[in-house]
Nucleic acid binder design. Structure first.
Lengths: 149, 149
DNA sequence: TACAAATAATTAGTGTGACAAATATATAAA
DNA sequence: TTTATATATTTGTCACACTAATTATTTGTA
């Protein structure tokens, strides 16, 4: 196989990742979910991990700080999240899901799991494991850090 | 496997695609390539397919028209591409690589192939084929269209 | 204590992505 | 021929990614 054909992975990866996000976003819009795909990722992690600082959350969702700041801004504006001053460290906030945010996560979770399934038609569990392994290997190769599962 | 674990593919896919682009972009910057990763994709396709309209190019690189318009704007500003009025159709342009654009592609191509290889350490040709198959299947599942290749 | 270095979060600037709407031109149908 | 429809490209708006720089605060060290 030539270097040339080999290098196509970056194109296919980018194209598929965009398609996955675009498909989900369309479904989100059609169902009037009132959040974007990335906002959902943040809400989901907040609901699973309780009070987090923005730095802790950034490490969970693998987004950089400026991006996260803006996503949090939008979620606060929508009333799903609150920034609570950290009691010991005045530089920091603790992020808190409001009641409205908790209700949003509860109502969206099953719908989103269903949307995510569509991508795996014609693929099996073994494909999923292989896919995960290859994605994680690529990530590690370019990151130079050890990854948790 | 639970639906929950299964749905993680979207996170891993997005994270890896961003890492791949980020890694390449850093190398581009370090080497003073004077183009972004997406601008390179456009230059590369122009060099391989000669005169194209923006619509033809958009279909090749799987970007939408507004995005492509802006990338072309930047490449024109940098002097690598020209918009030539289409002789028969006054709505349309033929995109043309300038001498400077051709030189850019020639000098960058081998460097970029080398950068792209880094991702595939610890992976073999069979992994590549599996990866391609799964990515394309996911794409098709969400796109509803038939794909070439 | 005082001062330097590290950390948490934000702001600013540029590029890209998706979607909707607008503009100009071409083609097909009445 | 007139009108309707389709096509090529652009513009506008919002969201996200990355970089660099900034502000406020905390921690480490002399």
């Amino acid at each position: 196989m030539t270097q040339e054909q080999f290098a196509k992975y970056s194109f296919l990866l980018d194209r598929t990742a965009r398609k996955v996000k675009q498909y989900a976003q369309q479904q989100f819009k059609q169902g009037d979910f009132d959040v974007t795909v990335d906002q959902w990722l943040v809400l989901k992690n907040l609901s699973e991990h309780g009070l987090l600082s923005q730095t802790e959350l950034a490490n969970l969702v693998f987004k950089d700080h400026p991006t996260l700041t803006r996503i949090i801004d939008l979620l606060c504006k929508k009333g799903y999240v609150e920034r609570i001053p950290h009691p010991q460290d005045r530089r920091s906030f603790q992020l808190h899901l409001t009641d409205s945010g908790v209700a949003k996560v509860t109502s969206l979770r099953p719908k989103i799991l269903e949307i995510r399934e569509k991508a795996w038609e014609n693929l099996n569990e073994n494909d999923f494991d292989e896919f995960k392994r290859i994605l994680n290997t690529i990530y590690q190769n370019l990151d130079g850090q050890v990854m948790e599962e």
